[in-house]
Every structure is written in structure tokens, then in C-alpha cells.
Simulated assay, not measured.
Amino acid sequence: MKIIIYVYNGMTMLDAIGPYEILRHMNDTDVLFVAEKPGNIKADSGFIDINVKHSIDDIKSADILLLPGSTIGFLNEIKKKNVIEWIKEVDKSTKWTTSVCTGSILLASTGLLSGLKATSHWKPINLLSDFGAIPTRERIVEQGKYITAAGVSAGIDMALYLSNKIVGEVETKAIQLTIEYDPQPLFQSGNYSNADENILKTAEKKLTKGAKKELGLLGMIKNTRNILNMIK
């Protein structure tokens, strides 16, 4: 089974690596990181690079396609016609097309989620409606072969959900144990609906700070003021 994880400058690293750590443990799988061009891909933090060997010109089909998200980097990818066309081309061959966080907005921009429910990070989730998708505040949303996950850590849960569909409960439980995924958070504030107003405001400040840093790293996105307003 061929699994493609599309990576790009400014992506949130856990969006890609979290699901990777699940999916790579399924039997008879080949997981490939694919970028627009081979080379180093820089995460939104600016501290981590991933060296990618495969480009979208090399890989045209897969059983599973996964699109990770980012703070604002996905906005660059939406503007790339070659990337959008590549996603649509690969989707023709997939059994499952998936996303994590704002990767769903990139996916929606192709038109593939038009009229379908989808989730994303809690802050920019309403952008899904700009591309005809139906914003749905759930951890995981399945619509036919399309599975979208909420923000960042939800990618791990989505990958387990997908693994269960493909290899079954016993194998998936074994994978979960392999990575010792046994979440026991100190606070119950990881869900938008559970967070009080003060926590929301503090989180929004952190998102704005992260977006400003990412804008400096990427240096390619126009309409900076509109972008920062989007996440304030």
C-alpha cells in the first residue's frame, strides 16, 4: 500500500509526523514524503527541516493521500495551480484522501470537498465554507473516502481511525501500544468547546505570534494584514 504525505514549507511538523508514526507500522506499507520539489522543507517553527526526496512530478498515484496543515503556509499552497492539479490527480487513484488541521482547507480548495462536511483547526475552520465544504467541529469527520481531522494532535487519532478501517482492531491496538499512545492530559482544555474565554484569548495570541513568525520565515504571502486578521 502506497501512502503519500504531502509536505511544504511552513507546515506544522506533527501534522505529518504524528500520522506517519501510525501508518508506517501497518503491514505492507510504503510511506513517502512528497513535496513540490525535492530538498529541505522547513516547518512553521523554523527550527526543524525535513529532507524530501520525492516531488509531485515523480509521484502521481497512491492508495492514501495525506495533507498536513500549517498556521498560514497552506495559503501559499492554495495558490499553486500545479499543486492543486496534482492533488486532484492523485485523488483519482486513492482509496482514502485525508487531511490534518488546515490541510482540509487546502483539500477543500481543490473542490473535492464541495458539499461535504469537514473539520479543521478550531480557529480558521470557517474558511472551509469559502470552498464549498461544510465546517463541522468534530475531532474526525468521514465523508465517503475523505477523512479530515481537527488541529495538529487530531492527526494521530485520525491515523488510528484509518488504520482500524484498513488492518482492523487487533493490529491497530498493537500499533497504538507500539507508540505507547495513552493520552492523559493534565487539563481538559484541548477542545474548543471546553475552553473558557480567557484560555481562548491566550491561545489566539499564541496563534497570532506564530503566524507573524511564519510570515517572516516564508516571506511570500501577500495581504499580510488580512492573514493576521483571519487568526486574531
Results as ranks from 00 to 15, higher is better:
52 V>P: 06
47 F>E: 15
51 N>M: 12
87 I>K: 01
40 N>W: 14
22 I>Y: 09
82 N>M: 01
63 D>G: 00
87 I>A: 01
60 K>M: 03
93 S>H: 11
88 K>E: 13
62 A>T: 00
8 Y>D: 03
12 T>Q: 13
62 A>E: 07
49 D>M: 13
63 D>S: 12
38 P>R: 04
30 D>C: 09
35 A>S: 10
43 A>M: 13
39 G>F: 07
64 I>F: 03
24 R>E: 15
80 K>G: 00
53 K>H: 13
54 H>L: 03
32 L>C: 11
28 D>T: 08
13 M>V: 15
85 E>A: 11
16 A>Q: 05
19 P>A: 03
23 L>D: 07
61 S>V: 11
67 L>A: 04
41 I>V: 12
26 M>C: 10
38 P>D: 04
28 D>N: 13
24 R>A: 09
50 I>K: 07
46 G>C: 09
16 A>R: 09
94 T>Y: 12
78 I>F: 01
23 L>V: 08
81 K>Q: 12
31 V>Q: 10
61 S>A: 13
50 I>Y: 05
24 R>N: 14
85 E>M: 00
94 T>S: 05
51 N>E: 10
66 L>K: 06
78 I>Q: 04
45 S>F: 01
75 L>M: 09
84 I>L: 07
88 K>W: 11
87 I>C: 02
78 I>P: 09
37 K>H: 14
45 S>N: 13
46 G>A: 11
54 H>A: 11
35 A>W: 00
27 N>V: 12
9 N>A: 01
26 M>H: 02
62 A>D: 07
38 P>T: 01
40 N>C: 14
48 I>K: 11
85 E>W: 07
90 V>R: 01
35 A>P: 03
21 E>Q: 12
70 S>H: 02
30 D>K: 13
69 G>D: 06
11 M>R: 06
37 K>C: 04
35 A>Q: 07
71 T>E: 06
54 H>T: 06
91 D>R: 05
32 L>N: 12
19 P>L: 08
45 S>L: 08
62 A>Q: 04
54 H>P: 06
57 D>P: 02
51 N>S: 15
43 A>R: 11
68 P>F: 08
9 N>T: 05
65 L>D: 02
81 K>E: 15
46 G>M: 10
45 S>T: 15
37 K>Q: 13
34 V>T: 01
42 K>E: 12
79 K>M: 10
